[in-house]
Design a protein around this nucleic acid. Structure first.
Length: 564
RNA sequence: GUCUCAGUAGCUCAGCUGGAUAGAGCAACGGACUUCUAAUCCGUAGGUCGCAGGUUCGAACCCUGCCUGGGACACCA
């Protein structure tokens, strides 16, 4: 178990200074109001940000500009009043300046962030943890591909993204469960059975076509061969034969999916069967509740969920005229079951082609008395594979189809994980296979991993050095050193942001930026030098950088090799 | 037609939910290896943030309309 999280949170130098500055600013305004320098106004929600431009200092606030309107005084004038009343003793601020339209900029002592190095080394694997989630129970459901085939690029992106979101949320203090929903019921399974039977009969020499709506994939031939090796099923009825085939094939396909995901670095806490919902009568149960609440209408011979009552464009069938519940009905029951399991927040990762399903799912949860916002859907856009500068055309029908397993074999886990997660889910992903495979500086994955390996390489050569026990971090005054330290200090904030926005691509970018700063430092400074004091300080910096690189890479499922 | 995502440097994309002179990688051009790993670094150049209005101290970001591209609009999942 993790300790209360907040101790890590509190130990963050950036956060500490931000809250100190915030308090000082608030006090300054209060003081100015009491002295009659400012009219009596309530203090707005201002921010302490890190300016992009170095000329603007290490921190800046927009407080004066926000006060301008209620106080009816020009922002720069207000900034002046605030700064003259500001008490900053105990905060390592070197200079305060008013700039631009009314920003108040804080320039820190050069060594203000240096203690971050110690924080990193002390907290090690826990450095960067945050208490944003406060132990809130969250379930992340992702991939949930039909167990009737192989994982494709869309599934792969969902897998990388879902797993990273889960990891980031966990690191940000949520209590996270990863779940895979197995669609082992309904129409699809019936089609699956028919297709299997056709393939089976084909193997026995009969000329039976795979049904039009069935699964054309040739992988079913292998499945059926495996089945025949184990048991012959000739002299039984068709329905019983199908049942046996489906049972066998589902187990085989699911095992394959599990294995591929394992190779992809993903393990689930829970595999949830759709069929189990039906068997336990939970689907009917949920429908009864909806009916009792008045959200089911009977139209002709089918039953409909009144999605229009929740802002949707049209109602949606839950029970077909043949009496069978739709996928939607099962999905409602499934999500109700999730809430009953005690989750405060449900996050689903879906392909963008399911976006029409989002509102009615949320509506159905509202109908059952849950908050529609407690169900959150992250939609991911398509993946386009490129090889040799050309788009790789894929079609299940022609068998031109690259699976996740193929991809892992071709480019490896680390590159695949990084590429799938480096873009915002909202953006179409252009996946350049040649680039992902390249063992050179064009490939961002190698660039980042190389940074980690470089540091490890330094440490391999320090064993015989007689270094001082305690490093004097104040010796780190070079621009590259200061920049690197600041980046390390910012990690926790980056984690919080990535968690809030469900945006692991921020972490991917962070690792790239951090690696860049490391390389830049490395090319301009040597670590192992005759000056043992400075050497020790730099080694501390290297150690901290190594830890943060490793921690950040872990959040996106990429390994941090010690040697390359 | 309705819904939805996207449109930012030649290309691929960031841009911290409204802040200052819009950033990175690649490609282009010019430099740096007797060095702890050059799988690296430094520099130069490159922009009407799709278009038009609006909101305000301030807009790539928010609102409205339009244009272009992807996706979705089943008694499939």
């Amino acid at each position: 178990m993790k300790l209360g999280g907040n101790i890590f949170f509190m130990n963050n130098i950036v956060k500490t200074i931000q809250s100190q500055l915030m308090q000082a600013l608030q006090y300054s305004v209060t003081k100015a109001v009491n002295a009659g320098l400012l009219p009596s106004v309530s203090i707005p929600d201002f921010i302490i940000e890190s300016p992009r431009e170095k000329d603007h200092g290490e921190f800046a606030t927009n407080l004066a500009m926000l006060l301008a309107k209620p106080a009816k005084i020009a922002p720069r004038k207000i900034a002046e009043i605030i700064t003259t009343n500001l008490e900053l003793t105990g905060i390592s601020v070197q200079k305060v300046a008013i700039a631009g339209p009314g920003f108040i900029n804080f320039y820190m002592e050069p060594t203000w962030a240096h203690q971050a190095i110690r924080e990193v080394i002390e907290q090690d694997h826990d450095y960067g943890r945050a208490d944003l989630g406060k132990g809130k129970k969250v379930q992340v459901e992702f991939v949930s591909a039909n167990p009737t085939g192989l994982l494709h690029m869309g599934n792969a992106r969902g897998a990388a993204l879902g797993d990273s979101i889960a990891t980031v949320l966990d690191f940000a203090g949520f209590n996270v469960q990863r779940e895979y929903y197995i669609n082992d019921a309904g129409n699809q399974i019936e089609n699956f059975g028919k297709s299997l039977e056709a393939r089976y009969l084909q193997q026995l020499g009969q000329d039976v076509p795979v049904p039009e709506e069935g699964y054309q994939g040739e992988d079913l031939i292998t499945t059926v061969k495996n089945f025949i090796e184990q048991e012959q099923q000739l002299a039984v009825s068709s329905s019983s034969r199908r049942e046996k085939l489906v049972e066998f094939a589902l187990a085989e396909k699911l095992a394959a999916i599990k294995n591929t995901l394992l190779d992809f670095g993903i393990t689930y806490d829970s595999w949830f069967s759709e069929d189990s919902l039906h068997r336990q009568g939970l689907v009917n149960n949920t429908l009864a509740i909806l009916k009792q609440k008045g959200y089911i209408s009977e139209n002709e011979v089918a039953l409909w969920f009144k999605a229009t009552a929740f802002g949707d464009e049209k109602d949606e069938v839950v029970v077909r005229s043949n009496g069978k519940p739709t996928y939607f009905a099962a999905d409602i029951a499934y999500h109700q079951h999730k809430f009953e399991r005690g989750f405060d927040l449900l996050i689903n990762i879906w392909g963008a082609d399911h976006h029409g399903h989002v509102n009615r799912m949320k509506g159905s949860m509202e109908a059952l008395g849950y908050s529609r916002d407690a169900l959150e859907i992250v939609l991911i856009q398509l993946v386009r594979l490129l090889r040799g500068g050309e788009v790789v055309r894929m079609s299940k029908r022609t068998g031109q189809f690259i699976t996740l397993a193929d991809l892992l074999e071709e480019i490896g886990k680390d590159a695949a994980r990084y590429f799938f997660v480096m873009r915002s889910p909202d953006s179409h992903l252009e996946f350049d296979l040649d680039l992902a495979k390249a063992q050179n500086n064009d490939n961002p994955v190698f660039y980042i991993q190389y940074a980690h390996a470089r540091i490890c390489s330094i440490f391999r050569q320090t064993k015989e050095l007689n270094l001082p026990q305690e490093a004097d971090l104040k010796l780190l005054q070079q621009q590259q050193e200061v920049d690197l330290i600041r980046k390390l200090a910012d990690f926790s904030e980056e984690v919080v942001l990535a968690a809030k926005l469900r945006a692991p691509h921020r972490i991917a970018k962070y690792t790239h930026d951090l690696a860049g700063l490391l390389h830049s430092f490395y090319n301009n400074n040597r670590v192992i030098i005759p000056d043992l004091q400075l050497s020790a300080a730099r080694l501390s910096l290297m150690d901290a950088t190594r830890i943060v690189l490793r921690n950040a890479l872990k959040l996106i499922g990429v390994s941090a090799p010690k040697q390359m």
